[in-house]
Design a protein around this nucleic acid. Sequence first.
DNA 1: CCCCAGGTGTCAG
DNA 2: CTGACACATGGG
Length: 288
Amino acid sequence: MKNPPFDNRLIITHAQSTEAADFNLEVTMDSGQVFGFVKQGGAVYRGDIGGQNISFYRKNNRLFWDQCISEKTLRRYFDLDRDLSPVYRALKADPKLVAAYNSLRGLRLIQQDPWQGLAGFILSSNNNVKRIQRIWSAMIEYYSTKRKSGVMGFPSAREIADTHENTLRQLGLGYRAPFLWASSVFVANNPQCFEYIREESYERALEKVLCFPGIGPKVADCVLLYAFQKYEAFPVDVWILKIVRRLYFNNRKVSEDRVRSFAQARWGEHAGYIQQYLFHGARTGILG
DNA sequence: CCCCAGGTGTCAG
DNA sequence: CTGACACATGGG
């Protein structure tokens, strides 16, 4: 069992803090959105935001972190300035979802780095969160030691493109190695492609993301939701398929496409947020 | 040996 | 459009 690539320093020095009342950090970090954070002792998390190593925790309705990152960056990363009352209204209006509101209130969608989101969810296909996190850590460890700066952080598209596909296999990616490697080459050679995706509509952005190797409809929706803030996106994985079938289709057999259209018609621009509550609710058994 | 995990690519009807 | 199967790897 390998150690996490970050040290086990528990004390945050020169901590900054910001108001974070309607925010459940624990649930947000544990809801399968990001794979690069290590939970240290207590409720302190350590990882990488905006290319900076950072530790943070939440206490007394405030979010505390060490000195490397601006308040603005952090509030943006955790989507802290979003008014969640429309989402809450939708949850409370549906008897089948009230339990998710009661247990998960404060769960927010993280606005993660485009490349890291793309890479993370290529890794996620037919995989489990534990192993995704292990692969993520192994990649940080391997590529960081190759850096002259020695900074610990997830490799850029360029750094991966400059290595061989077999490097990724040795880090445990399995059959996803050629997918991630080819994607890294494309991103490294087309650094502007993320701007296009960000500025386009959900539908057009979806077409673009689907062109990446190893990215199908489900992963594409994850990328659009978590890395590009396309809140109509509604990723349908095995958990979502199961819970939506049970709650809204009387357990009838339904395709992923139908589930997605159903959700987008029902929740519109909040479908992505509702999906996160559904996903975590289904995984933890809160929704029955 | 089996099945499953935040699925995708491919090929057959 | 839907259905089957292979694909790496680790855990139960």
